Amino acid sequence: MSGSGAAPPARLSIHDVMPATLPQVADIVARMHAHGLPPATLLVVPGHDWDPAGIAQLRTWHEAGHALAAHGWHHRARHIRGLRHRLHAATLSRDAAEHLALTADEIAALMQASHDWFPAHDLPAPDTYVPPAWALGAITLPALQRLPFARIETTAGMLDVASGRTEHLPLVGFEADTPLRARALRTWNRGQIALARATGRALRVGIHPHDRALKLADDLEGLLAELGRAGTARAA
């Protein structure tokens, strides 16, 4: 972990859990176990070709203590919609910010379908929703309160839907596939870790399936090792 001082409390999540990424997710779960870390929250993308073996794997992970959260539907925007989405795609999300291409009604319908997929496949209904790329899009709080989720995670932190209050929490990520993205993310992560240490707020650690093969793999491994030694991590 960059910087000095004790490891902050941390909340761990593994993103983009879908049939094509299950081997990589299993590898990350194994590395977390090797570091003595607790189970993470697994962010499941329902709108793919899940077969019975994949569903069984999700059930096995849940039974081992991993929480399941809903994470969009396809995790891919159908088009780039407007200036905000264009800037977000260019700087952060590329084509992953699924919500930003949708109207408010379409976002609500997608979130409801994402929730309903779990009990339809004999999995526990999720109470947490994480929009792809943490981009919630143009949906109001009253509309969110009509949906079955208690918490929604955005870039800023964890939104308690009933109260409308957001718990602002630092966030680090490691999905860097170019030198420029690696430099930018490393700088961002250092600042976020420093903020977590200074404020005592929990550090959200968002892990993506291919992070261990990308340019910040060593940073991720070092952070997991330190959190394991400190014993401060839990599911997001």
Rank of each mutant, 00 (worst) to 15 (best):
G3E: 13
A6T: 14
A10I: 08
V17Q: 01
H33W: 10
G36Q: 09
P38N: 03
L43S: 01
V45P: 00
H48N: 06
P52I: 11
R59I: 04
R59T: 10
W61P: 02
H62S: 06
E63C: 08
A69D: 05
H71M: 02
H71C: 01
W73A: 00
H75S: 02
R78A: 15
I80M: 05
I80G: 00
I80H: 06
L83W: 13
L83G: 03
H85V: 12
L87H: 09
L92E: 11
R94L: 09
D95F: 10
A101T: 06
A101H: 03
L102F: 05
A108D: 08
H115E: 04
F118N: 02
T128V: 13
P131V: 09
P132L: 01
L136E: 02
L136S: 02
A138K: 07
A138T: 09
T140W: 12
L147H: 06
P148F: 12
T154S: 06
A156M: 04
D160K: 04
H168E: 13
P170Y: 02
G173E: 15
F174Y: 15
A184F: 09
L185N: 00
R197W: 09
R201D: 10
R201V: 02
H208S: 03
P209A: 11
H210M: 07
R212P: 05
A217Q: 05
D219P: 02
E221I: 08
A225T: 15
A230N: 08
G231A: 08
A235G: 11
